[in-house]
């Protein structure tokens, strides 16, 4: 068994809607191990994105504790959380979310600049990742000159370049045609195999769910099922 990258203890999240408190997640206990290729599945409103936001340090839980890479980040300041996101977490979004005024190269370079990486190393790492996602020839093109699949590849390179321990992807294939989606999924799978970086998806996409080593199904803010695909990792185990 490998070390856990994420550990959630009794995590709750609720939102205020006027004077009403609306629960989004209720008492989640979850542990994601290093190198996992996991999927958070469930119907709309089940709490997938909320859970992903909490794990990604984009939001804070209402109750419970959250550990990332062994570190209790529950009470970390906003600046500390920004540092953690910049150094330990990579994000892939449904709408790619590249910075439109920056070229593919510069988009990938940006997290390294935030991390204070020197110019030479920065360029090496950016080129390495653009090459890895097959976009070296488009390095100088801006997002509006790239196709959807190419943009998502840039986003993947940006997520990976700072050597995170965890990559979170919210519906990464939802805006792509099925062929491109399959290619992106293949790419993510390969990166997971080669780097052992943990991947966690929030998705409806059956293709991603079927290829995930672990499927965490959410319903009404609770974990309804937590399965490991042992055809990929050695059998299916119902955790709840």
């Amino acid at each position: 068994m490998t070390d856990s990258v994420i550990r959630l203890q009794g995590v709750r999240k609720s939102y205020r809607l006027g004077k009403v408190e609306v629960p989004a997640l209720g008492g989640i206990d979850l542990e994601i191990e290093s190198g996992e290729f996991g999927a958070l599945a469930g119907p709309s409103g089940s709490g997938k994105t909320t859970l992903l936001n909490l794990i990604g340090c984009l939001d804070k839980p209402t109750a419970g504790r959250l550990f990332l890479d062994g570190l209790d980040i529950t009470d970390s300041s906003l600046d500390k959380l920004a540092d953690i996101r910049g150094s330990k977490i990579g994000f892939i979004f449904q709408t790619f979310n590249l910075i439109p005024v920056l070229s593919a190269f510069e988009n990938v370079e940006y997290p390294l600049l935030l991390g204070g990486v020197g110019r030479k190393e920065r360029h090496e790492r950016v080129n390495e990742w653009l090459d890895n996602v097959g976009l070296a020839p488009q390095a100088n093109q801006r997002p509006d000159q790239l196709s959807g699949g190419q943009r998502q590849r840039v986003a993947i390179a940006r997520a990976m370049v700072s050597r995170p321990v965890l990559v979170l992807a919210d519906e990464p294939t939802a805006n792509l045609d099925s062929e491109t989606a399959a290619q992106i999924l293949d790419l993510l799978h390969r990166i997971n195999r080669e780097t052992s970086v943990t991947f966690l998806f929030a998705t409806h996409d059956p293709a991603i769910i079927s290829r995930a080593h672990r499927r965490i199904r959410l319903r009404d803010g609770h974990i309804a099922a937590d399965e490991r695909n042992h055809q990929l990792t050695g059998g299916v185990v119902h955790a709840s």
Binding site: D79, A82, S87, F93, L98
Partner: peptide, 16 residues
């Protein structure tokens, strides 16, 4: 707004 959210998500601090 979404771009600002992205910049913050990938580690940009408020001051920046």
């Amino acid at each position: 707004t979404r771009e600002i959210g992205t910049l913050m998500a990938i580690g940009t601090k408020r001051k920046r």
